[in-house]
């Protein structure tokens, strides 16, 4: 019963979003309409394709509503799914945050006077600090999430993976910049 309700809810939300987009988003966020006239010649405007796509989306929502009324359909979300995703995304966000900020922080604390991360972003070990710490953290936390405990194996695998990537790509290719050095 819950699955039928979820699929019906999905269908209803899809129809509502598609109608909102068709009547509010597309008209207000495209310069030309469905058809535009330039120097007396008619051509298809920028709103036509998204309009049709949102029309298809609305149709898919209606079909989903009909299919859900007919019977049980596979596919359902559970609370545990959201719990997993929340933890996994937090792990990813924190790891990428460490990747971005660990290098500049290390330069600020341990670098010489007048040094900035931007000047040192192509100099070892500064350029590796963020990637190694963030990459190790990403792998370790995701393994720990599945194993439901932090193990030395998880840390070693994370560190080995990050160092291997540094070894393979940073040392072998001059033109490749490890994250986040291209942004700095």
């Amino acid at each position: 019963m819950r699955r039928i309700n979820q699929n019906m809810a999905l269908g209803a939300v899809i129809v509502a979003l598609a109608l909102f987009a068709l009547f509010a988003w597309v008209p207000n966020d495209t310069v030309s309409g469905f058809v535009e006239s330039k120097r007396g010649r008619l051509s298809i405007g920028d709103a036509m394709a998204p309009g049709i796509a949102f029309g298809l989306m609305a149709l898919s929502g209606l079909i989903l509503l009909l299919e859900a009324r007919k019977g049980d359909m596979p596919g359902a979300l559970e609370q545990r799914t959201f719990a997993f995703l929340l933890v996994a995304l937090t792990a990813c966000a924190v790891s990428f945050g460490v990747m971005i900020w660990a290098g500049p922080l290390a330069v600020a604390v341990f670098g010489g006077e007048g040094d900035t991360y931007r000047n040192l972003r192509d100099t070892a070990p500064w350029k590796h600090i963020g990637f190694v710490l963030g990459g190790t953290g990403l792998v370790t936390t995701l393994i720990a999430l599945v194993e439901k405990r932090v193990t030395s194996n998880a840390v070693m695998i994370g560190l080995a993976a990050a160092l291997a990537l540094v070894g393979v790509f940073d040392l072998a290719f001059d033109n490749l910049l490890l994250p986040p050095n291209g942004d700095q």
Partner: peptide, 29 residues
Amino acid sequence: ASVGKGLLSVSLGLIAAFIASGSDLSPRL
């Protein structure tokens, strides 16, 4: 799993691709 879900997937793919594309100078959506 169903035609509705297949069509939903197609429509979402089209919409994602239409964002910031188009022929106007100002990108759409």
